[in-house]
Amino acid sequence: MALIETKQISRIYSMGDVEVKALDNVSFTIDKGEFVAIMGASGSGKSTTMNILGCLDSPTSGKYLLEGMDVSKMGRDELAAIRSKKLGFVFQGFNLLPRTSAIENVELPMLYSGMHARQRKNKALEALNLVGLAGREHHTPSQLSGGQQQRVAIGRALVNNAPIILADEPTGNLDSKTSVEIMELFVKLNAESNITIILVTHEPDIATYSRRLMKFSDGHLISDTTRGMQ
C-alpha cells in the first residue's frame, strides 16, 4: 500500500462567476521513505497539491488516500487530527510563533496531540538536538538567524514522529550556503529516519537533492521522473 495515493483529484476555485481549475484530474502515488520535489511555475497547481496533501484543503473531486484512509471527504476536525499525527510542515517564511522560545515552538504540535508536559519537553529537546540547535532552546525567533529559524521549524515538523514532512519552498528566504545546510538536514532525516519528504521549490539545484521530481503545469502533472540511487 502506498503512503500517499491520489486518484484523479481536482480542485476548482469559484471566483464569482469564473471557475478556476487549479488542479485537474491528477493521480500519483508516493511511497514511504521517498524524497519528492515538486516544481512548476506559479499557478501551475503545485501549491494546491501541497495544500491538499497537507490536509489543509480538500479536493473538489477525486480521492486522496493517506495510509489507505480516504481523507478527501473528512471534516475540519478530522483533518486537524490527521495533520497532528501524520504531517509536519516547513514553510518558506518559517511561520514560528513570535516572542516564543525555540523549545516552545517545537512543543506546539504536542500540545494538540495531548502529551504530558514533561514528555513534551524531553521530546522537544531531542528534536532540537537532532536539527543541531542544542543550547538554543530558549532563544526566540528574533534572536535566531534565518537558517536557525528554519531548523526550529523542521524540529517542530518532526517532533510528533510524523511519517511525512511537507516543505513549501523551505530555502526561499535563505542564502545559498544556509540552503545547502537545510537541504542536507532533509536528506539526513530522509535517509536516517526514513521520513517521507515532499518539497515544493522553483530552484532546480534544490530539486536535485530529491530522488523523484514531479513537474506541474496548468493544473496538470506533466512529468514524474525518478533518478537512480546517487
Partner: peptide, 8 residues
C-alpha cells in the same frame, strides 16, 4: 500555524 500543527 496552530491549525497547521494540529489544533482543531
Amino acid at each position: 500555524i496552530r491549525m497547521a500543527v494540529g489544533a482543531n
